[in-house]
Amino acid sequence: MMLARVADSLYWIGRYIERAEHLCRISEVMLTATLDDNESATEVARIALAAIGDHEESEEILTPVEQVRNLLFDRDDLGSVGASLSRARENARQVRDQITTETWERLNILYLRVTGPYAEQEFAQSASTYLHGIIADLHLFKGAADATMSHGEGWRFLLLGVHLERAQRIARLLDVCFGDHAGPTPMTDHLAQMAVLRMACALEPYLRVYTAEIHPLYVLQYLLFDEDFPRSIRFSTARIQEYLDKLAPRSTVVSRAGPERLAGRLNARLEFADLDETLGASAILGAVVAECSRIHHAVYETFIDYPLEQRLPA
């Protein structure tokens, strides 16, 4: 039992943290890749910008570093890393009584690093060191939360946010590589595929499974269906189902589209998918994005923004 508003905040902390980490990682990979001046670099930059999403083509042509700077510090852009971390912290402040001091301090340090007076200067000195530092700090936050928070209801809402965000983001990344939003030519470039794996933090684990043989089908299979890799979509959907199963029985009213039922269905779809389905990747990727968003709404209806009339004592 916890306040609905608190569950809401914890859920969004999870989402914002995951979003910030994903954006930083894609940015870092893009900056490293574009040090070279070749076709792979162009392809990587296209993928990165497309995966980051809704950035309209700007009038002026920005260098990758400028683009990343905007992505990090642009205060007007609600999708920026700075905005995500500010909002995560703002949410954490509102539930300061619910998270441990250790966890709060990690998040507060991150916030001060990204919004502090020296942030842009540090970034200018070495963009990649800066991004690396932010990602490491985000890991510390997750580690502190894991090690100090009680793994109960609040924790589940936090991680529910993390995994819903992750599943949607990875699905989007795969979509711009292999799905409807892919480039005009099929992706075969070795370096570009390595970069995509890096963007999902998957290169090293992938190599252990498939060796250095990198093939679009394998990349797709790995990031969609792998059972153990924490950034594969199936791993996330399994967690989403697990957390919702634990959260659900506590709710007194079972709504028709209960989030745990939606999560179970999505997870089953990935668990029992035909590998050939990957040939038409866009269908399953589209389904992941759509189902995650339905789960999000169902979570709200069940736990957070429920109609009062249903819950009043008789």
């Binding site: 039992m1 916890m2 306040l3 609905a4 508003r5 569950a7 209801e153 809402f157 959260l247 506590r250 709710s251 007194t252 009213v253 736990f303 957070i304 429920y306 009062l308 819950r311 009043l312 004592p313």
Partner: peptide, 9 residues
């Protein structure tokens, strides 16, 4: 009552 994840308390 307060609004909790499990209804009103």
């Amino acid at each position: 009552y307060m609004r909790t994840t499990e209804g009103l308390r």
